[in-house]
């Protein structure tokens, strides 16, 4: 790692001030950033650790019935504390990485990084979540802008994520057997006014909604409604772990499985 300083602000305001320094970089749980630093793929002068900010941690339900999760909340905490409110989301959190990673990695860090194979972006997009930052609220549909790209500005911090709670939901992940990241992951969420389907791991454009499947499932929420439906392999990721056609095929399979298992 290149040398850098670490600051540990205890409030959002102090963190924002610290991030205004040249080449400052926010450090959430560090489960992606620290390996990145070790490979010398980033060279910040200052890391601003967000783990000391109590006001961005925690899980609760607000008066509007939304599940509110602080940006600094670890996957392990979401797995435990969201289960009574939004079991599909808790189940997703419970299968990110491994237990030790889940005790450090945070939802805000995952959404800010927007890894094309990360799990949380699929949940945020399929739930129609709202991402709150220190300056504004961003709808999930506007937030994700392609692989490792989001609507966040320099120095903007994800402080909270608000999830509408679906009637039923399920996340199905086909794990890349070595990294255990999603080779393809599909989050299906059934709301009173329709179904949303979000896909991670598959596309060169990052997480996306499969609108054709959404339309079919909104009129008939069953795996058979997806019979014969397939995605174009044109924009799919192709690498040593799977071809574009394989990923496109997996999206349909995982979607059907998610619909069948949704609860």
């Amino acid at each position: 790692m290149y040398a850098f300083d670490i600051e540990r602000p205890t409030s959002i305001a102090d963190a924002v001030a610290a991030l205004a320094k040249e080449d400052a970089q926010a450090l959430a749980g560090g489960q992606t950033l620290i390996p990145t630093l070790k490979q010398r793929l980033a060279m910040p002068s200052v890391l601003v650790s967000l783990s000391g900010i109590a006001e961005i941690r925690g899980v609760c339900k607000d008066d509007a019935g939304l599940l509110c999760i602080g940006g600094g909340t670890t996957h392990g905490t979401v797995a435990k504390e969201a289960v009574a409110h939004y079991p599909g989301l808790a189940e997703l959190a419970a299968h990110i990485g491994d237990p030790a990673v889940r005790n450090r990695g945070t939802i805000g860090g995952s959404l800010a990084n927007n890894d094309p194979s990360a799990c949380y972006p699929a949940a945020a997009l399929a739930s129609g979540a709202t991402i709150l930052t220190n300056t504004r609220e961003i709808a999930a549909d506007d937030y994700f802008q392609g692989m490792f790209t989001t609507a966040l500005e320099e120095g903007e911090i994800v402080t909270e994520v608000k999830f509408p709670i679906p009637q039923s939901s399920c996340y199905m992940k086909f794990e890349q057997p070595a990294s255990r990241f999603a080779l393809v992951g599909v989050f299906v969420a059934k709301f009173a006014d329709g179904v949303k389907v979000a896909v991670t791991g598959a596309s060169n454009n990052g997480v996306f909604r499969w609108s054709e499947a959404e339309a079919a499932l909104s009129s008939d929420f069953s795996a058979s409604a997806l019979e014969g439906m397939s995605l174009s392999a044109d924009d799919m990721i192709a690498d040593m772990h799977g071809t574009a056609a394989y990923r496109a095929h997996l999206v349909a399979v995982m979607t059907r499985r998610a619909v069948s298992a949704a609860k």
Partner: peptide, 24 residues
């Protein structure tokens, strides 16, 4: 952060000590 040989407990929770800074 793959192998887990460095797992310690921080405030009672298992973490990978190779993927956390001392200052944290």
């Amino acid at each position: 952060s793959q192998c887990g040989a460095c797992v310690v407990h921080v405030n009672g929770e298992a973490v990978k000590a190779c993927t956390m800074f001392a200052l944290e």
